[in-house]
Amino acid sequence: MGALLEIDNLQTHFFTSGGTVKAVDGVSYDVNAGETVAVVGESGSGKSVTALSILRLIPKPPGEIVGGEIRFQGKNLAFCSEEEIRDIRGKDISMIFQEPMTSLNPVLSIGMQLTEPMLAHLPGMTEEAAKEKAVKLLEMVGINEPRRRIDQYPHHLSGGMRQRVMIAMSLACEPKLIIADEPTTALDVTIQAQILELMKNLTREMGVAMIIITHNLGVVARYADRVNVMYAGRIVETGKAADIYHRPRHPYTLALLKSVPRMDQPRQEKLDPVEGQPPDLTRLDGGCSFRPRCKFAEDRCAKSFPELEEMGEDHYSACFRSKEALSEIEL
């Protein structure tokens, strides 16, 4: 029995006037049923594009999935028909966006927006039943007086409340997988934890798998079962959250972890930012794309791209020097 979602060597490229942007260049990962997987990386590392590719929401042109497979319960989403993917969107796989302030339609009431996916996807769902369910969903995501809220419009709600509504919407059709694209980035720090806690609890209760895309490593440590670290359109390290957090084997992961303050470690002198800029994705050569910023870089890094190598149980890193230079690091 395979995983719920298997991404196999996915390649999504954007064909622009400035050249072909290889936003996602051979990404593979699995998501098991009920599991929470984090995808971490800088802006422009291809983490969002991977997620959008799963639901085929890449604007085309200029973007296109040029290779690889996305198998969801055995069906290849990358190349199925528009009708088939539309049936899956919102029903089996739903998505939570980064911007709660603009992800809800300002002219439709909360109730309408909550019931609409149910009415569209679940045959035999009546308007009454959908409305009852919407009230329950709002209650579940911790919104008070759901019966009154249902007739309100998005401008009546704060950012945190709206993100709760978005979560309720994503759960409406009882999906098997939720993709959350930086769900807390636009929220206040105090609300972030609430929202993440809520998502964690709900997905656990309902047995929903979740892909959480973030650049916040704190989120990863606390809420994810497994972590994929992406850099320049590829996965450079993947493993259990604890392994990634405490025993990083890829220089990029190490640099990321050192660039954020950590509460579970003694205070460092100063933070250590990742120097330099992410590479221009139109101009990737055959070598390791992290090489220009890497403290461990050697001559061989320019010659070929390192493949993912096993570092431990369910822990892979794509670096030639993972085993020698980085093998003893414990954070």
């Binding site: 639901l55 929401l57 539309r86 049936d87 899956i88 969107r89 919102g90 029903k91 739903s94 998505m95 966006f97 980064q98 911007e99 603009t102 992800s103 809800l104 339609n105 300002p106 439709l108 609409e116 996916p117 569209a120 996807h121 978005m166 919407m169």
Partner: peptide, 22 residues
């Protein structure tokens, strides 16, 4: 360009529904 249109697409609504209702 506002995310709620993408959100509507992500919810699996048909094009005519997105155009007319959203």
């Amino acid at each position: 360009e506002i995310p709620y249109v993408d959100a509507a697409r992500a919810l699996g609504f048909s094009n005519s529904r997105i155009i007319l209702r959203h």
